[in-house]
Design a protein around this nucleic acid. Structure first.
Lengths: 211, 211, 211, 211
DNA sequence: TATGAATGAGTGTTCATTCAT
DNA sequence: AATGAATGAACACTCATTCAT
């Protein structure tokens, strides 16, 4: 009976996880408005009722998905362990990481876009994520300072602005890959194009901070 | 009678224009999926039926709005008349223009985001826009070349990549202003913040291309 | 000016006629409910407003089309001039005519079906058609009587029932040609099939009335 | 609990059945085009959404109704058990049955008419019905053969044509009862008129096949 | 915990008809 | 006589959510 209880609980957790994964896909593919609760339930091989049981509403589910997405990227960033690298290497590694993360987690970008379309309505309700984000800025600040001490970076670069730019030059390229590919008549997603873009971005950032 | 004739024709044209303007707002605010045809009709002070009469369907209306948006920005870019400026000034003017255009036409960003969420489905059908976009790349290419001739820019900078970066550093900041403001706990849209960002972006671009 | 007047009037008549022809096609193809006023206007190369000007409403237009269809077939029947033929020949000619008329004027059948779906609502309002139809029964009655006098037909055959049957065996085959072709897996409209059916029908009728 | 389970399942089944019955009425009364989904839902005391849940679309619902109608008449025909009757009696029974079935199931006729207006589009998609129909022709063929063996029927009568004629002389009278009643100024549906017609039809068929 | 049936308020779209000229 | 713009009511269909078990 204890086992049965445990099993049940594990099932419950598993169901919740399946719903969350399915929701992430669906929200990423179609945005908050375009996502279908039916589709999420089906994809999760769960009953639609379970979604409401575990998450309350479609919007709350979206919020949970979004939070999880932010926590995931912030957690990965922390694991980079940039403190022990020389400043230039650390910065390059961060640019590289940001690019690769976006590339391998395209849902992240669409989720964030969707949230911004909704004016940050859901993120506002979440206090978990904000605290997670503070470190990022100070992390970049540390690298900049270290680089200046090393004599390789100039002083006076705003870490927040730099941080935004590092994200921007990767994010924009990937989120606008469809219209970009059409308008500029080139394949944004070929491995050559991707490599080229990453190199360009690293170059951009290093030139920006170098003495 | 001539006036009557004109009025008549103007009415049709005016109605079409009102619908288009209303649609732009609604699509920008809520995306393609979230936009409501009823709302567009009401905002345009037109009958819903007229929308279908003039544009065929919600999607075709979206396509028309999107095309118009691209034509508008590309037309404004052409008017910049950068050919007659020294290279540095020309480049700075372009960065400044791009930033200001996004700032004053926030619908543009949301429309493009929405189109990318739909994988460029509508833009693919439009042949008008592609041709309009070719000039942009060559325009940047010309500036870079001129700057190299002047001895102020280094050679070998890819104009397409530069072009993307110029857009990225403005676009990303503005499209993600809601989540950004929350996560980094600062007001992205205060005039100081906006000025600061623009300066940072100009700096970024100039450092990128300078010798 | 007189010429202009005439021209105008001729045009008016022509427009009316074009609308009527277009309406016949559209009603025949899609039934009263399925027919589209827009489509009729377009097909008639007329303005939609003209339809309402000449005919008042979609239903009245349908009524006019229906009346015209009945008048047409009844007129054609009168022209058969069966009185001067031997009874057998006259009857065969009538069966043949009925069949051929349905075959060459498939709109007639669909119009009548549509009218019956609407419980004869429009025909009830028309007094022209009823009088036209009386002759038909008496025509068949005359043939039967003549045949009996000639000694080739038996007496006591109800002319109305016979009349209905003559119509039925042709009409049913043609109106149900789609479902028939599918269910019985044969092509109802090949020229062999059509000839065969006509022969069968003539045979049926003659056996029915022969001594 | 078993009862509860049953009830649950019955509810789904019952709702489906109610929708089907309501749809049959509505489609029969107004044709496919004229039928209203709202009306069907209301008549079925079901939610409109359920219609789409169970049947997918209005057209698929129509197809299901049509299939059911064909299956019903074909099933009834099979139950006639004509093989054990003398040929004349069997044939008369078939004519009588066909007539009575049409009379008691007027929806059948309107459904078939509607399907033919739509060129058999829905029936084409149905494979169930075709196989059901094959027996009918062979059934009539058997009767004819038996009659010939008995010496009461002549040889050489095409069973398919006969089959069509048996349907035609009943179907046509009933489907065109509205226009018929108006044009020929008689009440098609009085019990005397109905009896008279049935007798006439039996007579027609027997004369057609008799030696 | 889990499920399938059910619902009401929309959502894009269509249509016959009328208005203004 | 003729036209094209405009309309409101309706239509098929959808969706997030709740009920009953």
């Amino acid at each position: 009976m204890a086992v049965a209880g445990k099993t049940k609980q594990r099932d419950a957790e598993a169901t919740r996880a399946r719903i969350l994964a399915a929701a992430k896909k669906e929200f990423a593919k179609n945005g908050l408005g375009g996502a279908r609760v039916d589709e999420i339930a089906e994809r999760a091989k769960a009953n639609k009722r379970m979604i409401y049981h575990y998450f309350g509403s479609k919007e709350e589910l979206f919020q949970t998905v979004l939070e999880a997405a932010y926590i995931d990227i912030r957690t990965a960033e922390r694991k980079l362990d940039l403190e022990h690298l020389p400043a230039r290497e650390a910065l390059e590694k961060l640019v590289r990481f940001t690019w690769t993360y976006y590339l391998k987690n395209p849902e992240f970008i669409t989720l964030v876009n969707s949230e911004n379309l909704h004016r940050g309505r859901h993120l506002k309700k979440s206090d978990v994520v904000t605290s997670f984000s503070r470190n990022l800025v100070s992390m970049v600040g540390d690298i900049l300072e270290r680089g200046a001490d090393e004599g390789v970076f100039r002083r006076g670069v705003d870490p927040t602005q730099l941080n935004i730019t590092i994200a921007a030059i990767g994010y924009y390229y990937l989120t606008n890959r469809y219209t970009g590919s059409i308008l500029f008549e080139r394949d944004y997603m070929s491995s050559e194009a991707l490599d080229e873009r990453l190199q360009f971005n690293i170059d951009t950032v290093l030139r920006l901070v170098s003495v």
